[in-house]
């Protein structure tokens, strides 16, 4: 009940943000030097024909008016048609979004597992001679962005060891069952274990490339929050009550230290979701990222606007979920 109220309140914050985001997006793209109308016409088109196309696309109107028209359509779920691909934009996003979310969730899982395990390890190494070495290790790990991990993984596991597939979502020749768009889930629903295996194999490299890049900050924050928590009175008091160290870590320290870590993971997910774009491009993974990059190269405005907005919506949804989770874990923030 409280959670619902909070989510409702959160929506009141999110909607204005989305409005401002869409306005910014629209304005930023209208300073574009290229003329989307001219690009949508064959090279033989005359000036008048281009003018007519401009009018048809509403590009001759003043900017606020263009925005109002566009927003009116968007509210009704109409993002227009792609100039380049000549297809409905909503349809294109619907086809690619699940793939990207699937990748991002798998990557976040990798980041969370590596991050939490690494954080505990770093914490266990406190006051140990190996500590500076481990910490320098995380600094160096932080210096490898996700697209370099992606390239390195292709080079090592794909090309040198030939251990893993690194293009697309499935082996060539396999036909994917289209139920929800989430391939791993669809394969399970269809009972096709061969497809599940192939899809999982194709997921490993991109998910690890993306996840490993975002694990080090999680490690560090978990470690430093654990260090902070262990200075708190209630840990000392728990020791004075004779509780075992394991119990103190699991039942007292982690419950508190996870809170700042969770906040960070919320922020990280936004970055990770954006980072999926590069990984998709490198692994030819058919998701939002590839759609976006193609659209950018072709100055395909309707797609750029729709995909840009989609990224924001997903980030805001995830942030709201993390906020709600934070609230359930932190009694101090709940209404007194």
């Amino acid at each position: 009940m409280q959670l619902l109220a909070t989510l409702g309140r959160r929506l009141l914050v999110v909607l204005p943000i989305l409005f401002v985001v869409s306005a910014l997006l629209f304005t930023a793209l209208r300073v574009l030097p290229v003329d989307p109308a001219a690009m949508s016409m064959p090279p033989t088109a005359t000036r008048d024909e281009i003018e007519a196309a401009r009018r048809a696309m509403g590009l001759d109107q003043p900017l606020p008016q263009q925005y109002a028209i566009w927003l009116g359509h968007v509210v009704h779920g109409d993002f227009g048609r792609s100039i380049h691909l000549r297809r409905d934009v909503v349809e294109l996003v619907r086809q690619t979004l699940p793939a990207t979310i699937e990748l991002a969730l798998c990557a976040m899982l990798v980041a969370a597992v590596l991050g939490l395990a690494g954080g505990l390890l770093l914490f266990a190494l406190r006051d140990n001679p190996a500590e500076p070495v481990a910490e320098t290790g995380t600094t160096l790990m932080m210096s490898v962005p996700e697209f370099l991990w992606a390239l390195l993984f292709i080079f090592v596991f794909g090309v040198a060891l030939q251990a893993m597939p690194f293009t697309g979502r499935l082996d060539p020749g396999m036909i994917r069952p289209d139920i929800t768009g989430f391939l791993l889930l669809d394969a399970l629903l269809a009972g096709r274990l061969d497809i599940l295996r192939s899809a999982a194999a194709h997921m490993v490299l991109p998910a690890f490339a993306l996840g490993i890049a975002f694990a080090p900050p999680i490690m560090r924050v978990l470690r430093s929050s654990l260090l902070d928590v262990y200075h708190e009175d209630y840990i000392h008091q728990a020791r004075l009550r004779g509780l075992s160290e394991t119990r103190i870590l699991l039942r007292h320290a982690l419950k508190n230290a996870i809170l700042p870590t969770l906040t960070l993971m919320g922020v990280q997910f936004g970055f990770l979701f954006g980072g999926s774009l590069l990984v998709e491009v490198i692994y030819s993974y058919p998701g939002l990222g590839n759609l976006m990059v193609d659209a950018v190269r072709n100055a395909d405005l309707p797609i750029i606007q729709a995909v840009g907005l989609t990224y924001c919506v997903v980030v805001l949804v995830i942030n709201s979920v993390v906020d709600g989770l934070y609230l359930t874990l932190n009694p101090r923030l709940r209404a007194r």
């Binding site: 009175d233 209630y234 000392h236 007292h252 419950k255 009694p331």
Partner: peptide, 13 residues
Amino acid sequence: PQEPLTALNPVRT
């Protein structure tokens, strides 16, 4: 303890 407010774990009842 000296500081009762910080000697109990804040996230547990």
